[in-house]
Design a protein around this nucleic acid. Structure first.
Lengths: 120, 120
DNA sequence: TGCCTATGTTGACGGTTGTCGAAGCAGGTG
DNA sequence: CACCTGCTTCGACAACCGTCAACATAGGCA
């Protein structure tokens, strides 16, 4: 087996936390959820994420989305951050690297922002 | 009218952006939306926001929620950030200051994370 | 093999952020 | 008035973050 297994941690996303309105978050829940919000808290990253998420087939080559006004290394840096936060996954196919949205992420984050019945 | 009108900007929230998956965000949309995500991108702020959002009546006194492991000035600092991001509002009533969740925020952010039909 | 293109990594720089203690302000109570 | 309590602001500091140029790596192709 080649040593290409990535040390990133894209697992701490899906079953994360109850809705924000259900009860006060614990420190651990807050740590986990804040990591995702933080990843989307930069305009460049948000544009990259949106570009991938809205791209045909739910995936996009870096070359398709790197026109966001910063240098290419910076794009790579931000994509790495999004990957480490568990929001994107990447796969190399030949010359190009394709990024796609981790499927469960959108719904998981959406649930966080749900109005819970207890918050009436 | 007393000169107590606050210079904060809690207006740039509600009608913000289309779903992230609908089309790539423009620079302006990303700037606006990232401000909200960034505000929730800190564990302490997320706990404070969750504490307010889940509190009875949708509002909470600072004294009710300041047990998050940081000093009281730091709590105040984070609440200010949340207010500047348009996520919370505050009101002084007698001795205590009450914070409440800006009502439209949760649904607005929830819509951002909606799966748009175009992203099939 | 060598060269070109597409991405990722490194190292450094300046700006931002989270944190605290100290000081300030506002309201209540005596 | 003085004093206490709840909260905010100020000033400072270390840590973190976004950015770039330079370099490194990977794959395709001649």
């Amino acid at each position: 087996m080649p040593p290409l297994l990535e040390p990133d941690a894209p697992e701490a996303v899906a079953p994360c936390c109850p809705p924000l309105t259900e009860r006060p978050f614990t420190a651990e829940e807050a740590e986990t959820a804040a990591r995702m919000f933080k990843a989307l808290g930069d305009p460049v990253r948000l544009r990259l994420f949106s570009a991938v998420a809205s791209h045909e087939g739910g995936e996009a080559c870096v070359c398709d989305i790197s026109d966001v006004g910063v240098s290419q290394p910076t794009v790579s840096h931000h994509l790495k951050k999004l990957k480490e936060a568990g929001l994107l996954t990447s796969e190399r196919r030949g010359t190009w690297v394709y990024y796609r949205v981790e499927p469960s992420v959108l719904s998981a984050m959406g649930k966080l922002l749900t109005i819970s019945p207890a918050a009436a």
